[in-house]
Design a binder for these strands. Sequence first.
DNA 1: TGCAAAATAGTACGATCGTTCGTATAATGC
DNA 2: GCATTATACGAACGATCGTACTATTTTGCA
Lengths: 196, 196
Amino acid sequence: MGKGAETRERILDQAARIASRDGLEGLTIGTLSSELGLSKSGLFAHFGSKDELQLQVLQAAVQRFEYGVIRPALTAPRGEPRIRALFDRWISWVNQEDMPGGCILIAASVELDDRPGLQRDFLVQAHRARVAALAKAARIAIEAGHFRPDLDPEQFAFDFYSITLGYNDSKRLLRDPRADDRARDAFERLLASCRA
Amino acid sequence: MGKGAETRERILDQAARIASRDGLEGLTIGTLSSELGLSKSGLFAHFGSKDELQLQVLQAAVQRFEYGVIRPALTAPRGEPRIRALFDRWISWVNQEDMPGGCILIAASVELDDRPGLQRDFLVQAHRARVAALAKAARIAIEAGHFRPDLDPEQFAFDFYSITLGYNDSKRLLRDPRADDRARDAFERLLASCRA
DNA sequence: TGCAAAATAGTACGATCGTTCGTATAATGC
DNA sequence: GCATTATACGAACGATCGTACTATTTTGCA
């Protein structure tokens, strides 16, 4: 990895932290550069525009999610165990301690939901892929005989993801000490309702 | 109502629209005043600071939620009918067409979840009250014999609210045409699992 | 109708925003 | 070890941010 790529990684890493707390729009080239000990213009040269910086922050986050949640969970046995692995990793992703503002993908979802642009387009596509991965895991669980055959996999994905959103809210905004229990309880009931 | 209070209402109304799309931090005194045909300083004088403007936008939104969702639903008969009324109104609130960026309370939740301040404090307190209202409605449904006696009302509130968050995501970000069906389906299954 | 008070406008401020440009320094390939 | 390219810097740009002052208009009441 060349020097430039190395710096770019450092930048995106810190940028993700800032964006998780202050949003993609609250992420500022001035603060970002000074926190990293770089000059504004030097940092700027890596991206060429703030739009591009935001986009790359999103892309990096999606990739980290892919490698930190989806792929490891796919090593779990097909069916319910894999679904459980997905949930466990998803929850701890939402609960990342090194992200001062929580899950950047949730933050970006709300921030971009009605703001057209490349950032939104990318986020939507990535989000669709995540939901599709959940639905596929449910489909596999049906094939494996763990889930009832008449289960709607897309509905399962909706239910699953809703729980993670509720967890995020209880944990980060309300700081409810029982947030983990609540999410776990909801998930177990979801599983029970899906079983064959 | 004096002239000042009238203008303040107009301001807060437009401010809510802007904040719903661009966030409380993206809400700017310059754009806000020019969109309303006011001078920056004239508008500013109504609030004294941006913090105060943000706070009043939040307070107005919470009050509108109270009068548009909670109170009307409380006129429905105790028990399951009231729960249904809450859900119906909650869903159409999240789906407000006059808010270009969707529910401002959800947006603010994600924006403020890790940013200390009066705005966050107020939002948390208001959010706790909303969740408490849900739990109370569940408790009443238990008393009425509609829900099973061993149901955990707070868990019900978590499940209920999670569905509305999932709905918001499906509707506004993914633009899933089946978002309404998905939320409705999840809600009906939640109800079924709660019945006595 | 006149007058104090309330409401709005005007102007200016320092700070910071994203961005451009020219230049210096550091890393890389031969 | 040198030439070339990649990388970073410094200064400056116009625009806009929130906020402070002062002046002007408008309002509501005696």
